Amino acid sequence: MRSEVVIVATAGRSPRIECSGGIAARATRADTVHLVSSVATPLGGDTISIRVVVEPGARLRVRSVAATLALPGPATAESHADWVLEVAGELDLDPEPTIVAAASRHFAATRVTLGADAAVRLRERVQIGRTGETQGFWSGSLHADVDGAPLLRHRVELGEGAPGDDVIAAPRACVSELTYPRTDPAPLGTPLMLAGGGSLSTWQGDRL
């Protein structure tokens, strides 16, 4: 299944939303949109594509109503989620965690384009496995530019098959939070000040 969501925030009006496939989006406040899974997704073979546009002077908060559960499909264990964020105003993106269950292999990619006056907070939380599960794999990349100049190129891989994996002590959970232009650290994690402004805080451990 392919699911697509487009959210456009314009100053002075409610967000415009278009959805197809297994993901729906609902405006819950004037500046807030919640994502809702209408079916079980992502399963192996599924692709989720989400595009968020925040126009100049607009403010948008994006949340989800529940955790995302990635499961293997009948033909493949691999699923994908792609986020494209075009921000000229202010965006706060903080969905519930992604749980990579059973032997799923989930690949997430986020591409952020920021205008010169944009502000953003992006938080991503991932857990490999439900209780007693350790065989899942997750790969997450974050590519961010500001006014045409590179800000960040970041990738994390967790779980079975990741470069740093081992059966004794490798982390099975992570939290990444990007803020721009603010540099105050996130409550959880090790902060890294970015040369182009803003900061990236990262944390890894066994369980969220």
Rank of each mutant, 00 (worst) to 15 (best):
A66M: 09
V62L: 11
R121M: 09
R172L: 10
S37T: 10
P97F: 09
T76W: 01
G159Q: 01
E133Q: 12
V156G: 02
C19K: 10
L69E: 07
S14Q: 15
A101R: 08
E124S: 03
R63N: 00
G136L: 03
A9N: 03
G140C: 13
E96Q: 15
V39Q: 09
S199W: 04
I48P: 03
L208F: 00
T41A: 13
V112W: 03
T76Q: 09
S3I: 02
T76E: 12
A81C: 12
I168F: 13
A9I: 10
G197D: 05
A75G: 05
L43C: 06
T32N: 05
A75Q: 13
G22M: 07
R153C: 15
A88L: 11
L178V: 01
V62Y: 05
P150R: 11
V33D: 04
R105T: 14
V120Q: 01
R155M: 14
T76C: 11
R130M: 06
A58H: 03
V87F: 05
V126C: 10
G115N: 07
E160G: 10
T47L: 14
P191Y: 06
D92Y: 13
T98S: 08
G73M: 04
V65T: 14
T98L: 11
L194T: 07
F107T: 11
D82K: 06
P150T: 06
V112H: 06
P15M: 12
S176R: 01
R63M: 15
S49N: 15
D145Y: 11
S176F: 01
P42T: 03
D184V: 08
E160W: 14
G148P: 00
R111Y: 02
S38T: 15
V87L: 00
A66S: 14
D82E: 12
R61A: 11
S20Y: 02
L208K: 09
L91M: 08
Q135S: 12
R26F: 14
R111M: 04
W83Q: 02
L200P: 00
L200V: 07
R51H: 07
P42Y: 04
R63L: 15
V8Y: 03
G197P: 01
V156N: 10
R153Q: 13
V156H: 03
A40R: 01
T183Q: 07
V87M: 04
W83Y: 14
A70H: 01
S3V: 00
S20R: 14
T131I: 09
D147L: 05
C174F: 14
C174R: 03
A11Y: 05
V33E: 05
A77P: 08
V146L: 06
G12H: 09
S176I: 02
P15R: 07
E133C: 05
L91A: 02
T202Q: 06
G57L: 01
L208V: 11
P150L: 08
V53P: 03
P42A: 09
E90C: 08
T41S: 15
A173I: 04
D147V: 07
R125L: 00
L93P: 02
R16H: 07
S104D: 09
D82C: 13
S176D: 03
